[in-house]
């Protein structure tokens, strides 16, 4: 191991595992009936790193998430998570390997309570069968208590917004921002190593998005997740990213820290069209 610097665990993690990325895509392509949504994408994410994926609409950002979580099938290339391929797994297996995601258009289990939402997403971490539930065994009760506890812990990460009486409120009664928060909490409850956040601050006001930006940082620092964020808000991207990847038409056109990427002529052209860079 290298010398531990006081700059924090996160940096250490980033350095030590620079050789061993937690997630790696190799020439990943996704075809939609001839349309290449992703075209030979190479991407790697190291443990404890926050990577932002940006790009104009239709660049293939959400498709990248869908391919990683096996919601759409990759037509070529490979996706490695902790060195093992994810190709061919069902989405639920991917989640139990340790990748959780949120959705661009918030998709909660709207009629389940806030607490149930975070309890149900621990499904792949729990083992009790029908018989346990029917016989009401000690193991069953312990497990229920444990997932309730962990659910509450995850929810309390967001301050008092999702705790107290809100535990038993159905999810659809939450405000928009709280739904987004609950979705992140639900992803956290699956006990992942990598979280994929799809436009986490979309539709939020500046105060809320600033707060959430801070939370994304804390997710890494306190919980040790590696994070990939799709985001359109450049403020947020600048704040949170260790590294920024720019996609356009399914191809990676730039990669680097925010300052480099934001001045890259190719990126400016992708966003603003031909001639804008000159």
């Amino acid at each position: 191991m290298s010398v531990t610097t006081p700059s924090g665990a996160a940096q250490e993690a980033a350095e030590s595992s620079a050789t061993q990325p937690i997630l790696e895509t190799r020439v990943l392509s996704v075809d939609f009936g001839g349309l290449k949504a992703l075209d030979g994408l190479d991407l790697s994410v190291c443990p404890g790193e926050i990577v932002s994926v940006i790009g104009p609409n239709g660049a293939g950002k959400t498709t990248l998430f869908n391919a990683i979580t096996a919601t759409v099938a990759a037509s070529e290339g490979d996706i490695l998570f902790e060195g093992k391929s994810l190709i061919g797994l069902d989405p639920n297996r991917v989640t139990s390997r340790g990748i959780a995601r949120t959705f661009q258009n918030v998709r909660l289990f709207a009629n389940m309570t806030v607490l149930e939402n975070v309890m149900v997403s621990q499904h792949c971490r729990t083992r009790q069968s029908v018989f346990g539930a029917l016989l009401y065994t000690k193991a069953f009760r312990d497990e229920e208590a444990e997932i309730t506890e962990r659910g509450k812990e995850v929810l309390s990460f967001f301050g008092h917004r999702l705790t107290g009486y809100r535990f038993d409120q159905p999810a659809y009664t939450l405000s928009y921002a709280n739904r987004r928060r609950l979705e992140i909490a639900r992803a956290m409850a699956t006990q992942p190593k990598l979280i994929l956040l799809d436009e986490p601050v979309a539709g939020m006001n500046p105060t809320e998005s600033a707060e959430l930006t801070g939370l994304i940082g804390r997710l890494r620092d306190e919980w040790g997740f590696a994070i990939v964020v799709i985001e359109h808000d450049m403020e947020v991207v600048r704040e949170v990213s260790d590294r920024v990847v720019v996609l356009d038409h399914g191809v990676k056109i730039a990669e680097g820290d925010y300052a480099d990427v934001s001045t890259d002529p190719q990126v400016i052209e992708a966003y603003l069209g031909h001639g804008a860079a000159s």
């Binding site: 996704v30 939609f32 009936g33 001839g34 099938a73 070529e76 190709i87 061919g88």
Partner: peptide, 13 residues
Amino acid sequence: RVAPTGRRRRRRT
């Protein structure tokens, strides 16, 4: 109908 064309190496349950 537009569907992803690539469906390969799906692990079997």
